[in-house]
Design a protein around this nucleic acid. Structure first.
Length: 445
RNA sequence: GUGGUUUUAGCUCAGUUGGUUAGAGCGCCUGAUUGUGGUUCAGGAGGUCGCCGGUUCGAGCCCGGUAUUCCACCCCA
């Protein structure tokens, strides 16, 4: 939970709408209130007016007489929310609260400061596949240095993580300064957000629609013409960056953005980084408004889902909380979406690494004590063992082992107890052999 | 936030113009096999048809409300 004021204004207009606001203790604004009859509603609101002078200026009866029922309800809802919403809100991401934390603890932190963090965050959005109201983010950030080496490190982290997960991804990147340069170069710097939003839709609606929307926005034909380089970039990232550099050559900030990315690539090159998974995308914008430099986005291959990671550099975020001139850069893994991807691509192992290796049978009152003693010995020897919990038919116990993918079953009945041996069945081959306890431990270890 | 869509057995889904006892596959249980899983065969259990109300002699099916699922837009993890 954060103060509402900590979160508002950090994520853009859309972000502000998606912040989960929290009601004051004891308030209830559920739909039931707004479905009441006129009489009930008016008497309810009279009580509210008594409680709060904030909505006293409203003459409810007047509005009711002159407006449609729906608009009255809208007006009432707005005023109700003014009364009911507290100064608290649920975390929207981990970056802004982290910036607040850094400012609060500035005296105890040695910069550059690195940290990782896993926690749930919330969006007041309509949920659908891959879009959740509550989901986990895994964030890694470093604040207190403008060094572009950190950008390179985050590329390495992305690449290493998805390599280990066995997932094929594309790490897309861009730089806000490049976008600034582009809007400057086409003489539309006063419409930065609008232009960038349209360009960002490129892969979704296509070049023609993008040009159309830019024209409607008021971008000059020569400006639009200049932009076409963006849509027809050829070659590797190095070539693309050179081409963009020419496009934004008239913009000081634009050139700086390109040079920053070139520097990052040079670090990666020095570290023998595999460039095949990364892709410079000058149309990549990202919604969060606090980014000022590099921006990242990771897309999974073979699964239709939004981006599974995001990130970028923010020069001024701590400044908003009273600590200026501290640059930071960080990335965020969308843990739930990554889970969805792994699940859909069947990348989770069939069995858990720490699942039981052997199931010891349970035949009855005397046998289960012998079995429990064996389980204890096996565990003491470092073998992951389990005993069937109740006396049951042997077939049932084998079936259980089969379904749990437990590779061995140790059968202990009257015969085995009398001879002080264990009858071990290999569930894959079906072969069954008798061992002493010591031999069994040696066999399973 | 806007526009759609889904909801019937544990799971995935059929269910005709409203008509007797709501079905299938898979799963589950029992037995064939009294101490031996996967395969096969035989049998069985399991449903307030999301919820509330209405129309009708009669509603899983029609109407109203509500919840919910998923999708598109928007936006993003």
């Amino acid at each position: 939970m954060e103060n509402l004021s900590t979160l508002t204004g950090k994520y853009g207009d859309e972000g502000d709408k998606l912040i989960f606001k929290v009601l004051n203790s004891g308030e209830y604004l559920g739909g039931k209130i707004f479905n009441k009859t006129k009489e009930n509603l008016l008497s309810f609101l009279d009580n509210q007016i008594e409680k709060s002078k904030k909505i006293a200026p409203l003459s409810l009866q007047d509005i009711w007489d002159n407006e449609t029922e729906k608009s009255v309800l809208e007006v009432l809802k707005m005023h109700m929310q003014e009364v009911g919403i507290s100064e608290k809100a649920l975390r929207y991401d981990l970056t802004v609260p982290f910036a607040r934390y850094v400012v609060m603890n500035r005296n105890d932190i040695t910069f550059p400061f690195k940290r990782y963090q896993v926690q749930p965050v919330w969006r007041a959005d309509r949920p659908q596949k891959g879009r959740y109201r509550e989901f986990y983010q895994f964030d890694a950030d470093v604040v207190g240095s403008p060094s572009l080496v950190y950008e390179a490190e985050f590329f390495q982290i992305f690449a290493e993580v998805f390599k280990r997960l066995g997932t094929s991804v594309t790490i897309k990147y861009n730089n806000r300064k490049v976008l600034n340069g582009i809007t400057e170069a086409i003489g539309a710097q006063d419409k930065f957000v609008e232009v960038v939003t349209i360009i960002d839709k490129l892969d979704k609606i296509g070049v023609e629609k993008v040009n159309e929307e830019l024209a409607v926005l008021g971008v000059t034909p020569s400006g639009i013409d200049k932009l076409q380089v963006l849509f027809t970039l050829q070659g590797g990232d190095k070539e693309k960056l050179e081409a963009i550099k020419t496009t934004v050559s008239s913009s000081e900030i634009g050139v700086k953005g390109v040079e920053e990315l070139q520097a990052v690539l040079s670090y990666l090159e020095a570290a023998n980084f595999d460039f095949s998974t990364i892709e410079f995308d000058p149309s990549l914008a990202r919604g969060l408004s606090y980014y000022t430099g590099a921006i990242f986005e990771v897309k999974a291959h073979g699964v239709q889902i939004g981006s599974i990671c995001g990130g970028g550099r923010y020069d001024d975020l701590t400044g908003l909380f009273g600590l200026p001139n501290v640059s930071g850069v960080g990335i965020s893994f969308g843990v739930d979406r990554i889970y969805d991807v792994l699940n859909e691509l069947n990348l989770f192992p069939e069995t858990m690494a720490d699942a039981a290796k052997v199931l010891v049978t349970n035949f009855g009152v005397d046998e289960e004590k012998f079995s429990f003693n064996l389980v204890t010995k096996l565990r003491a020897a470092g073998i992951n063992a389990d005993m069937y919990p109740t006396q049951a038919k042997l077939g049932k116990q084998f079936e259980y082992a089969d379904k749990k993918k437990i590779p061995f079953v140790a059968v202990i009945g009257a015969d085995e107890m009398a001879n002080n041996v264990v009858n071990l069945k290999d569930m894959v081959s079906g072969v069954q052999e008798k061992y002493t306890v010591e031999e069994l431990i040696g066999k399973l270890k």
